[in-house]
Every structure is written in C-alpha cells, then in structure tokens.
C-alpha cells in the first residue's frame, strides 16, 4: 500500500534537515531507512533520540506546479518521521 505523507510546514529558526522547499508538500514513502539520531538535538551538542527516517518521493508537479520541467519527474529526499504527517488516501 502506498503511504502518502505531507511534510509539516513549520518554520522554526535553527537547524532542521527537512528542506524548506519541501515543507507542506505531499509525497509517498519510497522506503524506510531505520532510526537515526535526531539532528535537531545533535546540532546543539545534546543527547539525541533515535528518530525514524524515511525516503519520501515527490513529483515535480507537486513541488513546482506549472513551473515543473516535466511534471512526472520526481524528487526523493530523506525526511524524519516527526516532520511527516499522514495524508488519508481519500483526502481532497
């Protein structure tokens, strides 16, 4: 089953590994990568909780709309689970 997710559109100051251009964008989980130390804690020298990391695939149409060179081309990025929210399949 394809799992659809949206990158949370929070914009805190400081070090976050979810790129700004992907925030608020919807994609599908391409694969699970396992758990890794939370960079938001590692970056400040703090003990880091392990967080699940996913490779999420977005279409260029989703990212850039009409500006996409070829809408069906894709972009994959690694996003931590706490930056993803599930999108129900029947969502508008």
């Amino acid at each position: 089953m394809v799992k659809r997710v949206r990158v949370r559109s929070l914009m805190p100051p400081g070090h976050v590994r979810a790129p700004a251009y992907l925030r608020g964008k919807t994609g599908v989980i391409e694969r699970s990568l396992g758990a890794f130390g939370n960079p938001e804690q590692l970056a400040y020298g703090l003990p880091a909780e392990k967080k699940p990391l996913f490779r999420v695939r977005f279409t260029m149409a989703e990212l850039w709309g009409d500006q996409a060179e070829r809408p069906a081309d894709t972009l994959d990025a690694e996003i931590y689970g706490h930056w993803l929210e599930e999108v129900p399949d029947h969502a508008p």
Binding site: R17, D73, D76
Partner: peptide, 15 residues
C-alpha cells in the same frame, strides 16, 4: 528525451 523519467535525489540526512 522526454520519455526518460528523471529522479533527483536530495541527500538531506544520513544516506
């Protein structure tokens, strides 16, 4: 060619 799908990979974290 337009028939080729491009997949871009942004190394955003640990891979």
């Amino acid at each position: 060619p337009d028939s080729t799908t491009i997949r871009v990979h942004d190394s955003t974290a640990d891979m």
